[in-house]
């Protein structure tokens, strides 16, 4: 089934729920579909969150194209962001670009390490990464929660959040007063770079062959370890980076639970894009729009629930009828 049909069904379900559940359906629908374009603030925020989503989604693309399931994205983003924040807070005196870079590197490295552990367990012992990546992430999310609520908490704020990172480290805003910042450009650049890497380079080719048929890849002499541990590490790094960018671009502090859910959202984005990094740009914008619509619909109407999740779920039910991912459980 084409992605567009899956998305259409998802949106139709959203409309149905809004109409059924809202006391003023017209107002809710307007808020859902129109509000993201209603002013610079909403529009910029929508683009900004699409950018973070895109970075995580291309992380999913790398793993899935190698035939591996990374279900730990949520934790890799959140814990990566926390570690990035910690590094920025611990070294407040660095020159501006270096400080930002340190934050992002720490975030990416954290995500990479988390995912690579699942990759190593798969390579060494054939432990299913679909389970271990989720469990590791689920085990570490409470640790991050604890750090934010405890040792790293800024007691001067009412929010459960860390202190704010030095203002020099923050990414510059592109469309004030919205949150849109340079990270959106980074996201697009990364998507294009990943596309070129997968389609044009020898290593990208090796990754694709591994994802298509692991036995064939081994037979032509492609490293199993490299494209199991390595591919998951890159996937985790992109998730961690997404978390780091959110800190440097929008939140400026680790806020309890601030990113949770984005990891799952990224899987939907990547699958709707048929695991193509360039199409993921469009797909991330679409999901960013639907999310922003759901958020404003909740703010502006009487009605609050996880509309975005339902839309994602419906899309996921339909989208893989056509997407070819190797199902390893026969």
């Amino acid at each position: 089934m084409p992605s567009i049909v899956a998305v259409a069904i998802g949106v139709a379900v959203a409309v149905g729920l809004l109409v059924v559940g809202s006391r003023d359906p017209a107002q809710s629908l307007r808020a859902y579909f129109v509000s993201p374009f209603s002013n610079r603030f909403f529009f910029g925020n929508m683009l900004s969150s699409s950018g973070y989503l895109l970075v995580a989604a291309i992380g999913i693309v790398v793993a899935f194209r190698a035939g591996l399931y990374n279900l730990g994205g949520d934790g890799q983003i959140y814990v990566g962001a926390l570690v990035g924040t910690y590094v920025a807070l611990a070294m407040p005196e660095l020159p501006a670009p270096v400080g930002t870079l340190a934050l992002l590197t720490a975030a990416a490295a954290t995500g990479a390490l988390m995912a690579a552990l699942s990759g190593a367990a798969k390579h060494l012992w054939d432990a299913p990464e679909i389970i271990t990546s989720y469990l590791l992430s689920a085990a570490l999310i409470p640790v991050a929660d604890y750090a934010i609520a405890g040792p790293l908490r800024d007691p001067s704020r009412s929010l459960l959040a860390s202190a704010r990172i030095p203002s020099a480290y923050r990414l510059s805003r592109l469309l004030p007063p919205s949150e849109l910042n340079t990270s959106a450009l980074v996201a697009i650049a990364l998507a294009i770079a990943l596309f070129a890497w997968i389609e044009r380079t020898t290593r990208g080719y090796e990754l694709r062959m591994t994802g298509m048929n692991r036995d064939f890849a081994a037979y032509v002499g492609i490293s199993r370890a490299g494209y199991t541990i390595g591919a998951l590490a890159v996937s985790g790094a992109l998730h961690g980076l997404s978390g780091g960018l959110m800190i440097a671009g929008t939140f400026h502090a680790a806020v309890s639970g601030f990113s949770l859910g984005i990891g799952w959202n990224a899987i939907a984005v990547a699958l709707v894009a048929r695991l193509d990094p360039l199409l993921a740009i469009g797909s991330a914008l679409l999901f960013g729009y639907l999310e922003a619509g759901a958020r404003t619909a909740m703010l502006q109407s009487d009605f609050t629930f996880q509309l975005g999740m339902v839309v994602q779920a419906v899309i996921l039910f339909f989208v893989t009828g056509s997407v070819l991912i190797r199902s390893r459980h026969q």
Partner: peptide, 12 residues
Amino acid sequence: ANIFVAGLATNL
């Protein structure tokens, strides 16, 4: 559909 993705969809 891919059983894993459909499983995720069930959770979401």
